[in-house]
Amino acid sequence: MNQGRNLFRTLVLILGFAFLYIPIVSLIVYSFNSSRLVTVWGGFSTKWYGALLQNDQILNAAFLSLKIAAISATLAVVLGTLAGLVLARFGPFKGRTLLSGLTTAPLVMPEVITGLSLLLLFVTMEQVIGWPAGRGMTTIVISHITLTMAFVTVVVQSRLSQMDDSLEEAAMDLGARPHKVFFLITLPIIAPALMSGWLLAFTLSLDDLVITSFVAGPGSSTLPMVIFSKVRLGVSPDINALATILVAIVAVGVAITGIMMARQQKQRERDAQMALAANQAMIESVKKG
């Protein structure tokens, strides 16, 4: 009976992961296909990578997207951390419910709505105060910050609510003023959460098509916009090559984090053993004394 359950479990996992990964694997395999007809195998080739590297439109778009993603992720982490701190630590105050609603709504809001509303805001602002003049990188960055700070807020808020708040009280008790408590205690402890928040924001920004299409002006085409206009016309092998490069970057990143995590895990196990030994020694000394 137990075996039957294990078999079921394994089967579910195999099918589930097959569903998740076959599309990605197919992208990679066909990026090395020399035939232009993506699904007909015409022999191994790396020519699409060469084509990709000569495609100025894609390269420029990629560069712009990276720039936007880096700026908006950084600012989103700053704003999201503040919002997470307010929600997790400041207790009930007037308007807290609205703030909490404003931070969770972008998580699920259909992007067409967010995109349209932001564009209309920018148009209105331009009419009223003359800024931002036209649409381009600034408007894209502002929109991406608004979208991604919601994710950062959730990450930070949940990390803070797991954190023992007597740590902060202890620091205050030992004479640190609130802003010092934040920089000396809270920030170092939640730093890993901020890092993953930043990566999440960066990825989301790099990936966003719909909102960006609304708020981008002429001449500020991001990578997803270029990809979308290309794939709308059907499959094209250089996009497969681009996908493969992206997957490779992510895979390397994950491998590095995985190795680091495994190392930390080992270190932690060693430390736990050390602590256990120390405890034993202490009990022994109590017995003797």
């Binding site: 007597s166 740590l167 009280e169 202890a170 620091a171 008790d173 170092p188």
Partner: peptide, 27 residues
């Protein structure tokens, strides 16, 4: 609290996990 001549030992001990024993005591 940060201006009181009073200190507290917390139930959870609240030892700063990112600092050594020495740094904790020196804080």
């Amino acid at each position: 609290p940060y201006e009181r001549p009073v200190n507290m030992m917390f139930q959870s001990y609240a030892i700063f996990p990112h600092m050594t024993v020495e740094q904790n005591v020196a804080f």
